[in-house]
Design a protein around this nucleic acid. Sequence first.
DNA 1: GGCGTGACTATACACAGGCACAGTTGGCTG
DNA 2: CAGCCAACTGTGCCTGTGTATAGTCACGCC
Lengths: 231, 231
Amino acid sequence: MAAAPHSSDLTGRARIRNAALRQFAERGFAATTMRDVATAAGVSPALVQHHFGTKDGLREACDTYALAAYIDIAERGVTKGELPDGHHIGEEASWLVRYLALALVEDSPAATAIFEALVAVTEGHLRTRDVGATDLHAQAVVLTAMRLGVTVLHRHVGRGLDTDVFSEEGVARVSLASLDLLAPGLVDTDLAESWRADLTDLPQRTGQSADPSETARSTPQPTQEVPPDDV
Amino acid sequence: MAAAPHSSDLTGRARIRNAALRQFAERGFAATTMRDVATAAGVSPALVQHHFGTKDGLREACDTYALAAYIDIAERGVTKGELPDGHHIGEEASWLVRYLALALVEDSPAATAIFEALVAVTEGHLRTRDVGATDLHAQAVVLTAMRLGVTVLHRHVGRGLDTDVFSEEGVARVSLASLDLLAPGLVDTDLAESWRADLTDLPQRTGQSADPSETARSTPQPTQEVPPDDV
DNA sequence: GGCGTGACTATACACAGGCACAGTTGGCTG
DNA sequence: CAGCCAACTGTGCCTGTGTATAGTCACGCC
């Protein structure tokens, strides 16, 4: 947990983990085979087992990795405002989000920790604004679930909005809708307004999207990859 | 949806379907085996295949069954107010909900239809109240996703609230939290207030409803199984 | 140079899961 | 009763999947 091996992180083990993350995120855990993961990572099935031992080991590695990365994202997101996620979700980070969403739904071992961490962050945020809270904890729980709902159901939301939820336009429209739907006071008013002004013209902007190539993702900071060190 | 074959529905095919519904809902589709379903239904694995042909056939049957049933529930729920679900979710109906939640997350074939139907219902409801709507459709989509989020993540929400989400107390606390979190105007004010008054003392009440005459919305209907006909 | 170590592969095995097939039973109709 | 159909079961095959094992290659170190 000490060093952050950025370059060595791109080889072997990490490539497999990333591939697994994607596969798990889009197919689910049970439906994903280790051979799928291996193929997607461009390695032999045996190497997967060499590095992670068992399929559950692989899942565990994905869990801890994704958890650490996302907590940070969520912390920044919630602290900045109230909206589902930051303005733009990078290519890599979007997979993190999708993975965690699915891990939450299936009962991945780390799911409990993930959810409770998110609740804690949200609750801390709610405590800041002081809504007339009878049951602050319940509010935090429900709000967390609501925000995650958009993520978990990103495919359907995306279809309904006719955009990818994680694209710039998608985030903007979801955020705007959230602003209208959520009680004012959750985000303080002027900040909300600046958001609104900000977001309204976002769709026009073409916006730099993340690089599509998965081989060389040396672009460091478009959306804060937050690589916690390996496993 | 026309006839309700109550007794014939309890035999063979229907028993298998119900068992499948539960298994799929709690384990997910890929992780559930036809042998599991057969065992849970108390029949031989071959009978499952005899009735539904293939595993996908079984899923399809579950989809259409659950869809029809839930649409009705949701329609009543959203029309009555804004809250996630009716006051109390019956044993059978709760499995429907859980199943649909999972069907939505995995990309079950009927998932699209389900989600869009729910969006349509919600959008119709939103059109009633007139919120200053710049993007009504997006609001409907996001609100639907938010409401479903609580359902999809019911395990975590339940743990966070230390109650089963589908129990009476669970529904009450979630509803109250939603009232506080969602923008006023989504539910019109007096109705919301009556809800609040109604819900606040719900946990205390043991079982029988001491309903004030003012809340004239339809009768609480303790469980409401809503069995659409077979297949 | 010898050599251990770790990344990586090929192969194989045990087993579970989906599915096919041939029955058996029981109830209904002629 | 004969005939038939549908519900239901036992059994087995074949593929796919997780995992174990043995082996190859490259590289750093004495």
